[in-house]
Amino acid sequence: MIRPGAHEIRMGVLAALGFAAIACLPLFDDGYYLSLAVNIVMYVALCTAWTLFSGPTHYISLATAAFFGIGTYTVGIGIETMPFGALLAIACVLSGFVAALVGLATLRLSGVYFVIFTLGLAELVRQVVTWVQTNFTTGIGLYVFTEFTEKHIFWMLLGLTAVIYLTGWAINRSRLGFAMRIIGNDETVAAHVGIDTARAKVLLFIVSGAFIGIIGAILAPRFAYIEPPSAFNPMISFQVVIMALLGGTRRLWGPLVGVIPFTIVFDAVSAQFPNHTSILMGLAFLAVVYLIPNGITGWIEALVAKLKGGEAAPARKTRWIA
């Protein structure tokens, strides 16, 4: 592990202050704005967790809804018998386990297979859960009654987001993070310098999936009533992809830049014109491909580099401390 430099310590302090300031929000409002804030923090957490894996590997994962639903269902099933903290841990382990299985089956192969597999994963888990519930239990829905209100969920999500950022930061500075950058550049070279590329990818996918599972678990009390179609809603997967790509996946904080405007716009559109959300998603995907392939952050970086003097920005230098 490399010791953090002065610049990083400063950034860390600033980030901590920022988190503290945001954590005060429920003191001022616990209506519409808090609800919107929960949505935003949820998507920031989801998109950042998604980017942990998909950013460096360029594999487009659509498994978010599956992990999220596994988390939600863990809480739904266990809330009567177990403390909430234990359920978060179980959600983490379960979704990490599913991520390991999916990763082992598909990550050795080309990216297309992975996309296709994850595309149907949420639907697959949903079918299995529905089938088990209708055939072996009394009913389809599950009630989740807890003491938690919107602001508790907000604080838990915010805390988890901080953990995700810290994890991402630690990974970037570790051998695993360096290995991922090499894999992203040239997988053949990566294997020939001794990197077990499949293991590195599966490991990262597990970390990403486990976080998403915890997010789903935290959100369960908000739903109060859990049904397979709402817990395994495939739209979540797509929204996470589009927001993360809009923001840009080259930086850990890139998705944040995409989430905030998109969540607000999407909320507004689905309230005013509920039939137009698909079109909005479609246009957003096309915009990412044709207009801003590196996301908003990538676009801003390129712009800044241009303004600074014509030449392309030199490759980012990792801070190695001797």
Binding site: V112, V115, N275, I279, M281, F285, V288, V289, P293
Partner: peptide, 22 residues
């Protein structure tokens, strides 16, 4: 090309689906 075409056709998928829903 694979990543680009996947994203672009996702865009088309949502766009067509949205238009048909309308």
């Amino acid at each position: 090309l694979e990543v680009d075409s996947i994203l672009a056709t996702f865009g088309l998928m949502f766009l067509f689906q949205g238009l048909m829903l309308l």
